[in-house]
């Protein structure tokens, strides 16, 4: 595989999974906070759905997104099937429940009286939530790592909604599957090593930030 194609695949993997993780945090952080801090009818059901969503098989998500974005599907007119955007959509559906569920668990692990204490010191609702996020920063960073880990390593959804099209939607995981199917095990192993190195580097950086915050 030419070097420029390899870097193209690697950058697309990072871009797609990075955007999907960012969107998942933007959805999961407030939604997880709401589930942790507010009591409302249906909250337990929502928590159960989120916890179930944390174990969604990527291939099932891929199938659902593919049917939705298919030309004859309800959102077919958007012409998103077999685009990087379609992969981002599928990956957000995979990662958002992970970030939401772990955010809710992180905030529920804090002493519930801390909220009252912060409000009793004159915090606005938003200031109170900001302090709780800061106090739970270690498990929240773990939620971010888990969210990223769930999408950078998935293949089923990316394959189904992206189509593994060369120069367009081929990412590291789908390229590994392709090379394996072709019997090019050396290439597949090299791509796997690259994927592992990237995830190791990113998780090392996040872990370093996490543990620095612990000191």
């Amino acid at each position: 595989m030419p070097l420029d194609e390899l870097s193209e695949i690697t950058l697309l993997s990072l871009r797609v999974s990075g955007v999907a993780t960012l969107l998942s945090v933007l959805i999961g952080l407030p939604f997880g906070t709401l589930l942790a801090l507010r009591k409302f009818p249906g909250r337990s059901l929502l928590l159960t759905l989120v916890n179930t969503g944390m174990a969604l098989p990527p291939v099932v998500v891929g199938l659902a997104v593919a049917i939705t974005l298919w030309r004859s599907g309800p959102l077919g007119s958007l012409r998103l099937i077999y685009t990087p955007t379609a992969i981002v959509i599928a990956q957000v559906i995979i990662a958002a429940p992970v970030v939401t569920g772990l955010t809710a668990a992180a905030l529920q692990a804090l002493d519930p009286r801390l909220r009252l204490q912060l409000l009793g010191l004159g915090a606005s609702r938003f200031q109170m939530v900001q302090q709780l996020w800061r106090e739970a920063r270690l498990p929240l960073l773990a939620a971010l790592m888990a969210g990223f880990g769930s999408v950078i390593s998935e293949v089923g959804a990316s394959m189904m909604v992206g189509g593994n099209i060369r120069h367009q939607t081929r990412v590291l995981t789908t390229a590994i599957v392709l090379e394996t199917n072709k019997g090019e095990f050396e290439r597949a192993l090299a791509l796997s090593a690259l994927l592992l190195a990237i995830t190791l580097l990113i998780n090392y950086t996040l872990t370093w930030i996490q543990q620095r915050g612990k000191r």
């Binding site: 009286r113 009252l116 912060l118 004159g122 915090a123 606005s124 106090e135």
Partner: peptide, 27 residues
């Protein structure tokens, strides 16, 4: 913001003492 509340346990944040004492003033 006209009251001060101290609950049964100190319930301090995992930060330096200065930041804990400054909390309400920063709010």
């Amino acid at each position: 913001r006209r009251i001060g509340l101290v609950m049964q346990d100190a319930l301090l944040l995992d930060r330096p003492v200065f930041d804990n004492v400054a909390l309400g003033l920063r709010f």
